[in-house]
Amino acid sequence: MAKRLSMLMRMGNLTRTGQVGDGREEALADYVLAHAAPGDVDDAIRVIDEYAYRQATLINIGDEKGLVLDAAVRRAEPRLLLELGTYCGYSALRMSRVMGPKARLCSIEFSAANAAVARRIWDHAGLGERVTVLHGTLGDDGRTIDRLNSEYGFGPGRLDFVFVDHIARAYLPDLRRILDQRWLRPGSIVLADNMKVPGAPHYRAYLREHEGTQWRTREHHAHVEYQSWVKDLVLESEYLPSGAATGPGGTGPAPA
């Protein structure tokens, strides 16, 4: 509980810099390089979880909700994936492990320091060019979007999977930017973490408003990363052709 309270007290620093503010992110990279077998993605994931439980809590998706991420990627069978919020690269490790051998993941991170930490960990784990981190945001006057379109193969209907796990206030604006670019195809999946803690009410309200016409959403109930006493929620939303039904009865979210 003390670790979680300490983390909450540093939330202002997190929203400004993307880091907790006590050096734990750089320390994590050192820990992974010292304790994880080189070229072993599974072992890098194991060591990050170990660090989060024993050394310092991290704000990545964590092991419990990570299983939800794994399953969603397997269901989507994506060729092109986008992550909003790299942090230290943990969720990208998980996605790289379950996406197909020809799939490619582009991860966007607004903190240059976090992007460097992720690169160190990915290089140690042997991810190669299957995963790329771009320092920027989708809201930086088109610079990052232009790079995704011109350098990374993004375009209308080409994006199969999106993982949203950055600043809560950017969830809905960034989803709208993705829609404006027409990157999604019918059946593309958007997975969003932290629907209860810290919460993204405008994003959730938008999905409810468009349930059954533009989106089919299922709710995954879990807990805040690396503990078991604060409940959290992950939303898995399938992009639909206009007018598609939601399943039996045609109303309400699909079952989890």
Rank of each mutant, 00 (worst) to 15 (best):
G85E: 08
I145E: 14
L58N: 04
L58V: 04
E25D: 09
R75I: 04
F161Y: 09
G139F: 01
L134S: 08
H135N: 14
I178S: 05
G23T: 10
A2H: 09
Y53S: 03
V234D: 07
L33Y: 09
L28G: 13
L184V: 02
L58K: 03
G39W: 06
A205K: 14
D180E: 14
D232Y: 03
D70I: 01
K231T: 13
T251M: 07
Q227C: 04
M95I: 11
G212Y: 08
A56T: 09
V162S: 02
V117I: 11
G21T: 03
G66E: 04
Q214H: 07
N149S: 08
G100H: 01
R177T: 13
Y171C: 05
R185P: 01
P156S: 02
A44Y: 00
R169H: 04
D146I: 03
V47N: 04
G23W: 00
G252P: 00
A27M: 08
R218M: 12
H135R: 10
M11F: 11
P78F: 01
D140F: 00
R182L: 10
G139W: 00
F110C: 04
E151D: 14
D146M: 05
G142D: 05
G66W: 03
A222N: 11
D160M: 05
Q214K: 07
I145M: 10
E209K: 12
A37D: 10
N194Q: 04
P173I: 05
T144Y: 03
D22H: 08
R169Y: 02
Y226C: 01
M7Y: 15
P101G: 08
S91V: 02
Y206N: 03
R218V: 12
E109L: 03
L5M: 12
A192E: 03
H210T: 13
N114F: 00
T15R: 11
A72M: 09
L233C: 13
W183V: 00
P173F: 07
T246G: 15
L8H: 10
G252K: 05
S111A: 09
G142V: 08
A34P: 02
Y203T: 06
L82V: 13
K3I: 02
R218I: 06
Y53R: 10
I145R: 15
L81S: 13
G66P: 02
R182Q: 14
A76T: 10
L69H: 07
R120N: 00
E219L: 14
L138G: 01
A34E: 14
D22W: 01
W122Q: 12
D40Q: 08
